Amino acid sequence: MATAQERQRLEPVWREVTARAGVDARTYELWVEDSDGLNAVAAAGHIVGVTRFAMSELPNGESAAVTAHELGHHVGGHTWSSLLGYWCALPGRIAWRVFRGIGRALFKVSKSFSCFGVGYFLLVFGSVALTTISTL
């Protein structure tokens, strides 16, 4: 969270940015992340965040440009579409991790079987993977 001094510095810049964009500044929540990196973020849930390093190092004009850029992500609907894309892709990412783990386990187990046993395991594993991927 932002300290009182950071809020005092950031809020006038934020009010100017939102006024120029024609949006209500109270719609969004300003966050200050405790980080030594120069970064900012627009997150779903009407959150605009900057790092503590950015707060201390950027002049007001550059802070305004950064926060205006992040506000543009909200106005353009990018934060919600990114969140939706993340959730829609989640089953595929989980399936990939599961199949990668199964594949590693099968590789270790296959060392104790003949060539025919390895081929059988690969055939079963490939069939399950193909079915899962085509279903997702």
Rank of each mutant, 00 (worst) to 15 (best):
R20S: 12
A21K: 03
A21V: 10
A21Q: 08
A21E: 09
A21S: 09
G22E: 11
G22F: 08
V23W: 03
R26W: 05
T27M: 06
Y28M: 05
L30Y: 06
L30I: 14
W31Q: 11
V32L: 09
E33Y: 15
D34N: 12
S35Y: 07
D36T: 13
G37M: 11
L38G: 03
L38I: 08
N39T: 05
A40L: 05
V41A: 14
V41G: 03
V41M: 10
A42Y: 00
A42V: 03
I47V: 15
I47D: 08
V48A: 05
G49C: 11
G49H: 07
T51A: 09
T51R: 01
R52P: 00
R52K: 00
F53H: 14
A54D: 02
A54L: 05
M55A: 06
S56G: 15
E57A: 03
E57F: 02
P59H: 02
N60T: 00
N60H: 09
G61L: 10
G61E: 15
E62H: 08
S63V: 11
A64L: 05
A65K: 00
T67A: 04
A68S: 15
A68L: 11
G76W: 06
H78C: 03
S82N: 07
L84E: 10
Y86C: 10
Y86E: 14
C88W: 10
C88R: 09
C88Y: 04
L90C: 01
P91Q: 01
R93Y: 10
R93M: 08
I94Y: 03
A95V: 04
R100M: 09
R100F: 11
R100P: 06
R100D: 13
G101K: 03
I102N: 00
G103P: 05
G103T: 04
R104Q: 10
F107A: 15
F107C: 15
S110V: 07
S110P: 00
S110Y: 03
S112C: 08
F113W: 15
S114F: 05
S114Q: 08
F116L: 12
G117Q: 09
V118N: 01
V118D: 05
V118F: 15
Y120V: 14
L122P: 00
L122W: 05
V124L: 13
V124N: 02
V124R: 04
F125L: 12
G126P: 07
G126C: 09
S127L: 13
S127R: 06
L130H: 09
L130E: 13
I133P: 10
S134G: 04
